[in-house]
Design a binder for these strands. Structure first.
Lengths: 248, 248
DNA sequence: CAACAGCCTTGACCCAGATCAAGACCAGGA
DNA sequence: TCCTGGTCTTGATCTGGGTCAAGGCTGTTG
């Protein structure tokens, strides 16, 4: 086993199986080494497609670095993003052999993969992993339902504000930053990708971002670099009551 | 144990824990009797609220008969349905003590409940149940993602056609009916509830249903009784490519 | 350097679906 | 029997966001 693939039992690395760091507290060296044996890495360049909907997909994976999206496309080309995968998020479904969505790398992407069959075997023999996976899936379901409220009932302005809040919050979480003070980050999505996320056109996305900038709710440096001087102000525009975190 | 609560190991009843009939093939009499000991029934009238979002919820449950909905509401009253629960569907989240959504009975409803603590204990000692729950949650996540495509990108007409297709399909499944021939069923939702499902207003729902009726794609007897002479014709209007089942 | 390609912005106009309003239908209660 | 309230339909009008079109900005390639 190469050096960089070894780590202690209670490691904190981002490439662990199904956010493995959260499981480690109770896991055994034995489990870990079994996971080590079936894992491998894959890298993709920004814009590359990981799998197409309907393709055979014989692995599950977790995002190590970079950002990936899940999208659905109708025959006439209308697209809807249905998942946004940030580092530590899980991709793939145990018990299914073909991908249900297009998976695309929107930035350079590294994933930690597990061949499906051995992974499923491990799930059977190691209840922790299944439990952790259930927890993560339930979180994703909650996020999807928050997203449904956004798609069905929010205005364009509220949609943009919500998306910026989601990205800002997740970015702050990843950086382990304190909640207060202005938030600064780079948008990981193009205007078109944001439109696909929000059920809008890219023109509307552009217009609403310009409006928020004009009104001082966000600051823009270039097209991607965002500063949020007052997060509460942004949340007000988003129309959220609960400010529970929403993820991909 | 009262007579009506006893059943053989490979029963087919609809009130079983987390669609228990699907687990039975591999479950033991022992497990079953433990489940029997922690289960109880609750009934609600049409229109009654089961729990409000934010309320304490110390049970998980599966729908025995009738229909329930999960909805989210914004402060100004905009509502979005985020789940439609038909018989055998599961409600509640292990590991969370308050409800995240309003749960409402839209028809008379019977649920088979399990107090949360003993249910969670059982999950730990009985891997089957956790596995089955993971499977069901993944199905729900897929359904939610299909729903997101509907909310974000479909026209009003496509939304209505999709909803009718979903209800017709699930209804046929519950009745174990053959796929061919005209489908006949009663709409379990008011126009307003359909609107909340689809991210539309009730007027638009009404107009689009009228349009589909005028064009012979559906037949209406009264306001609720629907006949679909040709299911494929309906699917065409729905704009679906995959005709995989979508559920609540 | 110019030419080009991606990405983004802004304007002008249009239309699907929201909003506002009026009434139809139907079941239940007095 | 007539009310009454809930549900549904239909019409008239309005508007948020889509569509079409014309550039602007920036980085890359020759």
């Amino acid at each position: 086993m190469p050096m960089q693939d070894m780590h202690p039992v209670h490691h904190e690395c981002g490439d662990c199986p199904i956010r493995h760091r959260a499981v480690c507290a109770r896991c055994e060296a034995d489990e870990l080494s079994r996971l080590e044996q079936i894992k491998y890495y894959r890298s993709y360049q920004a814009g590359q497609t990981v799998v197409w909907s309907g393709d055979r997909m014989d692995f599950v994976a977790s995002v190590v670095s970079g950002i990936a999206t899940l999208t659905q496309t109708m025959e006439d080309g209308r697209r809807q993003m249905v998942g946004l995968l940030l580092p530590s998020d899980f991709v793939g479904r145990p018990g299914r052999s073909t991908a249900a969505y297009d998976v695309t790398a929107t930035t350079d992407l590294v994933m930690c993969c597990f061949r499906k069959k051995p992974f499923e075997d491990m799930m059977l023999s190691t209840p922790h992993i299944g439990q952790r996976l259930l927890e993560m899936t339930l979180d994703e379901l909650d996020a999807a339902r928050e997203w449904m409220l956004l798609l069905g009932r929010k205005t364009a302005r509220e949609k943009i504000a919500s998306l910026l809040a989601i990205i800002a919050r997740r970015d702050a979480t990843l950086k382990l930053k304190a909640a207060k003070g202005p938030l600064v980050f780079d948008l990981p999505l193009t205007r078109e990708e944001m439109a696909d996320y929000l059920g809008l056109t890219l023109e509307t996305v552009s217009r609403q971002i310009s409006a928020l900038r004009r009104e001082g709710i966000i600051l823009l440096d270039g097209k991607r670099h965002v500063t949020i001087p007052d997060f509460d102000l942004l949340l007000e525009e988003a129309g959220d009551d609960s400010d529970g975190g929403v993820l991909g």
